[in-house]
């Protein structure tokens, strides 16, 4: 990769210009995300850098957009909704998904290809199509639950979104957990059974601790899928179930306010935490399986 000493002038020029091009592309990837962070501390209601900010004058900066976020009841409701819907959807996706992944990794599964195709279909079908289908069906289902069973309308609204988000998150759990199970040594469960442990005990004491990194990163994927998801929520949710991304979407479309940038900065911080966790887990499981030295 490094430039050999016998490189011609043309090769040297290409070597450096290629690195400059790559640098520019990396800048394209990362700068839009970094730019909103300082802008969210803007003392003015502008979406661009004010002269005070460019002079690094403290008067140009403030936390007022964060205060807006924390004091506005709409944003607070959206934050609460996001943290109700995403964790429950994740728990459903992870528990069903892990069981099914263990089933799929057995040596003899009839119709494995078809079953796999069905289970990952929510990831393959474009969101707008899933949302359209869910819009028709879930409104019927919601009416049934409300009229026939007399359930509370608000409660049914949450159930609809949680079920939809769980379905969207399941493919990620299936993919990551089956990938972890590929490296799982089956003789361990046999050894455990040999020593008298039942299937349930074997699962929780032997199998689960070993596949846990895969389960957790699958869960994080499912969480971020639900936490970021807007299209399905807009299609099937009502005003009471407004989530954080939905609130941002309306904000961007209608009355664009700099509070959005404060929220965006908080979300970037959350994604950095999630990314770090997933990376650490991935490296740990690679190290355990002896796939990578570091």
């Amino acid at each position: 990769m490094s430039l050999p000493s016998y490189a011609s002038t043309g090769q040297t020029v290409w070597y450096y210009s290629f690195r400059v091009i790559c640098g520019l592309i990396f800048a394209f990837l990362i700068i839009p995300i970094l730019v909103i962070i300082p802008l969210s501390f803007n003392a003015q209601d502008f979406f661009t850098f004010t002269p005070e900010m460019l002079r690094l004058d403290p008067a140009g900066f403030s936390l007022k957009h964060y205060q807006d976020f924390l004091s506005d009841s709409g944003w607070q409701q959206a934050l609460r909704n996001s943290f109700i819907i995403a964790p429950i959807a994740t728990v459903i996706a992870v528990s069903f998904g892990t069981l099914a992944a263990i089933g799929l990794s057995q040596s003899h599964v009839p119709f494995r290809g078809t079953i796999m195709a069905i289970l990952i279909s929510p990831m393959i079908v474009p969101l707008i199509i899933s949302a359209t289908g869910m819009f028709f069906f879930y409104s019927k289902m919601g009416n049934f639950l409300e009229d026939q069973l007399g359930w509370d309308q608000n409660f049914v609204g949450y159930i609809k979104i949680i079920l939809a988000h769980a379905a969207l998150g399941i493919p990620f759990v299936i993919i990551t957990v089956t990938a972890t199970l590929v490296g799982f040594d089956k003789s361990l469960t046999r050894a455990s059974a040999n020593m008298g442990a039942g299937p349930v005990r074997t699962f929780f004491k032997i199998q689960m601790p070993l596949i846990l990194p895969g389960v957790i990163s699958g869960g994080l994927f499912a969480f971020i899928t639900s936490f970021d998801e807007v299209v399905v929520v807009i299609f099937i949710g009502s005003a009471n179930q407004q989530t954080l991304p939905w609130q941002m979407f309306t904000g961007l479309r209608e009355q664009i306010s700099p509070t959005i940038l404060a929220v965006a900065t908080i979300l970037v911080a959350i994604s950095i935490v999630l990314l770090t966790t997933v990376e650490l887990l991935r490296r740990r499981s690679e190290r355990l399986r002896g796939m990578s030295p570091g």
């Binding site: 069903f96 998904g97 099914a100 089933g103 069905i118 279909s121 289908g133 379905a167």
Partner: peptide
């Protein structure tokens, strides 16, 4: 193996495939 997969399969069919078919 099928019993382990069945709950999820049922879940996906009900929450995802039936809505698409309905559409």
């Amino acid at each position: 193996a099928l019993l382990l997969i069945a709950p999820l399969l049922l879940f996906i069919v009900l929450t995802f495939l039936v809505p698409i078919g309905n559409m």
